[in-house]
Design a protein around this nucleic acid. Structure first.
Lengths: 132, 132
DNA sequence: AAATTTAACTTTCAAAATGCAAGTTAAATT
DNA sequence: AATTTAACTTGCATTTTGAAAGTTAAATTT
């Protein structure tokens, strides 16, 4: 996606404003997924060619890293960069929005509660775990 | 967009996970835009047929309202519903992300500063102004 | 009151993105 | 040596997007 404007919101959308990128980041962030096949088996079942192109773009955009697993060279280990980890507050606000406006979904209650009463602690914990 | 999963993040993307919807909400939220032609003249210049289809979807999804301007019946006045206003925290986090990771953009410094040191006051102010 | 302009779209069609299924390659396992 | 696994890529049909021109009703101008 080319740069559309100088707007900071538009800029975020230039990186993750498609239907899949934020779900990849979600899986890396909350579900401990690390490999291509992990990501392919998410609940939403994204097509393999789309997954491939999104991983490539996210890596080019500096939101994720890709490394070869030294114990099994077939496997590539995907992880979030610091910039990728910093997407977390956006995802938290999305979870809060759905907990309020679409309460009939699978909302992680614990997470929502902590997002409300210990937001910065939650962000700190997840961040340090992901950057460890 | 059909419902893809029970995930709260995926759910938000089902409503606004395209390249344009959040920019429409941004324009209604921060720039006081209210009419079709206002929205069409945003910096990113979205195609008129796409604008039309997004407004229809956002209205169906309960994020915006559409009313006829009583003083000029050609004009339709678009505004955010409470659910639409609640997108604000997501946009704020996007602005913060860009201020950190793409600082060479047009970032509203004032807004970023307040987002950091008076987040809930900022949200409260904008919310009450929009719902007035 | 007729002609023009404005606002909000709709339509058409080409181009790009998405999605499904099958195929490829290299490394690991049997 | 043969099979399986992981990570893709390729080919092609379908869907979405985008640019441009066209339509309609209400307001304004002449």
């Amino acid at each position: 996606m080319p740069t559309r404007s100088q707007c900071p919101i538009s800029n975020v959308l230039d990186h993750v404003g498609d239907k899949w990128s934020l779900l990849i980041i979600r899986d890396l962030m909350f579900f401990g997924k690390h490999t291509y096949s992990d990501l392919q088996n998410s609940e939403e079942k994204m097509a393999t060619n789309i997954l491939s192109s999104r991983l490539e773009k996210l890596e080019n955009d500096g939101l994720i890293n890709k490394q070869i697993d030294p114990t099994d060279k077939r496997k590539k280990v995907y992880s979030l960069t610091p910039a990728g980890v910093d997407i977390l507050p956006i995802l938290i606000e999305m979870i809060i929005w759905s907990s309020k406006h679409a309460p009939d979904l699978n909302i992680p209650t614990e997470l929502v509660a902590r997002a409300h009463n210990d937001r910065s602690g939650l962000i700190q914990d997840l961040t340090s775990r992901l950057l460890a």
